[in-house]
């Protein structure tokens, strides 16, 4: 069968162009992260990695992620169930609302939380009466990260659950399945890969969130620095090796994310054929 753009020269040219541009645009930056980190030898890497501020940044990043991912996982499942299994007035508005964190600058997200929970904010001043301070502390960073990453799971689930329809679930209900059993035995097996994919994306974004948390963190070294904020601070201090050492941890995680994603896609493609 003849196809458009299938003549060998066109084909070779387009593939070459795609490879060269990707190499320049994506691969060179990725490699240079590790190159910059390892440029001064392994000893330097060790010094930077064992630094107590790096450790506290890693710990805080893990804390934020460990809270954010399950919260948004649960929310994503409920939302997807709601909008794909029931029709009700306001369904479209709800779906558009959920996309807001996608469209808005993370700095604006941080600002919204600062205005609400900060000293001047009505919720913030009420909480201050009880000596609770959410801003410039880790709870505020968790809140902003939850906001920024809230659409990812739902976005993966909604198209899939819409395409699958509810016939299987209705059959199960007729046969007597209820609530949790219905979800675990009928829905979950159908959506597990998309769910996992959503979790991977949420995780990657939660770990790497920068603009939003930088507004509410106050960047107190050893206290309210996540790994991306730590990278920024080291870079501003002209500690290039230190910055790129921490950056290469994040880049390593990004590569793991890509590998898991490719594996998931391969798995889904194999299942559907």
């Amino acid at each position: 069968m003849r196809r458009i753009g299938d003549s060998p020269p066109v084909r070779a040219l387009l593939i070459a162009l795609a490879l060269v541009l990707t190499a320049l645009f994506l691969v060179v930056p990725l490699v240079s992260i590790f190159y910059q980190a390892f440029a001064s030898g392994l000893g330097e890497i060790w010094v930077n990695l064992s630094d107590e501020y790096t450790w506290s940044a890693i710990t805080l990043t893990l804390l934020v992620t460990v809270i954010t991912v399950p919260v948004n996982l649960a929310f994503g499942v409920f939302l997807a169930w709601l909008v794909t299994r029931f029709s009700f007035p306001g369904r479209r508005i709800l779906q558009t609302l959920i996309d807001i964190p996608f469209a808005v600058s993370p700095v604006v997200a941080g600002l919204l939380y600062l205005l609400l929970y900060g000293r001047g904010g009505w919720l913030g001043s009420w909480l201050a009466n009880y000596d609770l301070q959410l801003m410039f502390a880790w709870p505020g960073m968790v809140l902003v990260t939850v906001f920024v990453t809230c659409p990812f799971v739902a976005r993966e689930l909604i198209p899939l659950m819409q395409a699958q329809g509810s016939a299987e679930e209705e059959a199960a209900v007729t046969l007597g399945a209820r609530g949790w059993t219905l979800f675990r035995r009928v829905t979950l097996p159908n959506i597990r890969w998309a769910l996992l994919y959503g979790v991977i994306l949420t995780n990657a974004r939660a770990v790497g969130e920068f603009g939003g948390v930088s507004v509410v963190s106050g960047s107190i070294r050893g206290e309210t620095n996540t790994l991306p904020l730590h990278v920024e601070q080291l870079y501003q201090d002209y500690n290039t090796v230190g910055a790129f050492t921490s950056a290469s941890l994040l880049a390593g995680l990004a590569i793991v994310t890509l590998v898991i994603k490719a594996w998931l896609e391969w798995h889904t493609a194999r299942r559907s054929h």
Binding site: T22, L26, P29, S32, G208, L227, L229, T240
Partner: peptide, 23 residues
């Protein structure tokens, strides 16, 4: 190549920022 296309989503923006600025 296909997997690499998602790199910008997976890589924290601050890391991309300092890398591009340095390069």
């Amino acid at each position: 190549l296909d997997a690499l296309m998602d790199l910008p989503f997976a890589l924290p923006t601050a890391v991309a920022g300092i890398t591009l600025a340095t390069l």
